[in-house]
Write a protein that binds this DNA or RNA. Structure first.
Lengths: 254, 254
DNA sequence: GGCGGCAGTTGACCTCGGTCAACTGGATGC
DNA sequence: GCATCCAGTTGACCGAGGTCAACTGCCGCC
């Protein structure tokens, strides 16, 4: 069982945004009072998904956005040849499905990495409500924009960082995100496989494996299958910035 | 002078969205009649920018979104060390500045690659109007989402494609975008430097240079400084898909 | 409790693309 | 017209990380 990988105690989960533990992280952040109660009328059907089951796939008609309540997801692209590129991992409070706004079809796939649950936000309803609630509208845009900024960082990593930095940044990022979920201990339980990690980082699984070993040897962390305990957060943080700058400086024109 | 790199004849540019040549590509796409006239009240101050001048930089307060009217821009991130990562090149009709929605500050930099002009869309005003015009609202979300989808493709390129495929995809992409601007000949005028291209593709300038040479030798194209003439669009298209799949297949769970 | 399977690890080797350095050729200026 | 400068090109070399193959060990299953 991987129920220990579920980050939030299921008891904390309530039926409405108003009382949801993810309140401040999720779409309702910055929305209060009547507006929040209006938002509550959007949320539907808190489904549970088993590990490996698909939330949506490429080509699916766009019906709703989804908020991760518990567990975790990966989103990825598949090309014609079936090659995968992992785009992101999604933790509780994060919203999936924005890719479909452009064309009214999903152009990526989302899959649960463990037993997970989601809130469904039917888009039509969401748009109705946000016509009455300008704050919701702005918040939606903010959330998409945040998504973009995160992707920018992913892009920088792919373009410019050597392998070790990539893994370090990935781990640091997970530590940070779990920290904001009130898990401030430094043992991560990775719900994704080494393959997924490698793919996300633009590396191969062997490289990731070697890097984990090396980081363990240098005392940065302790790995045991899915469990990664950060022993030296300071060293990890150091590894995040490249020692060997590969890039050109921005040329100063003036 | 690089006025020959300006894609649209300046005579085509009018003062309002209603009559703008970019109408169907830009924010107004799918917006008509009174709604469009309302949108017109948002657009302000069609500024011109010289090559190398900065539209916004990291840390700038978020005031407006910008539409490229003519010319082209690059957007990029700078890290503390001054390393650059080019995020995107922006052609006429494309919108810049979404990165700032999340935090009300720009977290990237935008710079004109040639003599260019823009429409400014003050965000506060844009939000006012889109409260009255739901279509505008939806269109805005669509445009951001499209931006995300484009970044996904960039990410795949960075993560999985070998160097030659990256350049081929980049060129193909420019061909496609210029095609939708009614430039259906196959001579590109690259407004960005080899450094910018290399950086965007996660490569170094020497590699890009060698690839141009190789593609010229194999008869795919003809390069002359900034001018690239595609001789064999069919071959270029072929080069876009990787011959050596580097990635793992998506494991079929059911 | 022995077996098969698959995720993950380790090692040996090789290749793609990065690095470094020299060179070329337009563009600009005096 | 010659010098300078910088973007871009070319060549020689090298190393990070990919490839391929063998191995380990956990887990589920009969």
């Amino acid at each position: 069982m991987d129920s220990d990988a579920v980050i939030l105690d299921l008891n904390q989960l309530r039926r409405s945004c108003t009382s949801c533990a993810l309140h401040e992280l999720c779409l309702p952040a910055g929305i209060y009072g009547d507006d929040l109660r209006q938002l509550d009328t959007v949320v539907r059907d808190k489904r549970a998904l088993e590990r490996g089951s698909t939330l949506y796939r490429d080509g699916d008609a766009f019906k709703a956005l989804y908020v991760v309540r518990s567990g975790s997801f990966k989103t990825f692209l598949l090309n014609e040849a079936g090659d995968m590129q992992v785009l992101a991992f999604h933790l509780p409070g994060e919203i999936l499905g924005f890719d479909a706004l452009a064309s009214n079809r999903h152009v990526s796939q989302a899959e649960a990495l463990e037993h997970s649950s989601i809130c469904e936000l039917p888009y039509a309803r969401l748009m109705q409500v946000s016509n009455d609630v300008p704050a919701l509208h702005r918040q939606l845009m903010r959330v998409i924009s945040r998504e973009m900024v995160i992707e920018h960082r992913h892009l920088v990593m792919m373009g410019r960082q050597p392998a070790q930095e990539r893994l370090a940044i990935f781990l640091q990022n997970l530590v940070d995100r779990y920290a904001s979920l009130n898990r401030d201990d430094i043992t991560l339980t990775l719900s994704m496989s080494r393959y997924d990690i490698a793919n996300y980082l633009g590396l191969v699984v062997e490289t990731v494996s070697r890097l984990f070993t090396r980081m363990q040897e240098t005392g940065v962390l302790e790995v045991n299958r899915k469990s990664v305990r950060i022993l030296r957060p300071d060293l990890l943080a150091e590894l995040c910035s490249t020692q060997h700058p590969r890039t050109l400086k921005s040329h100063d024109r003036d």
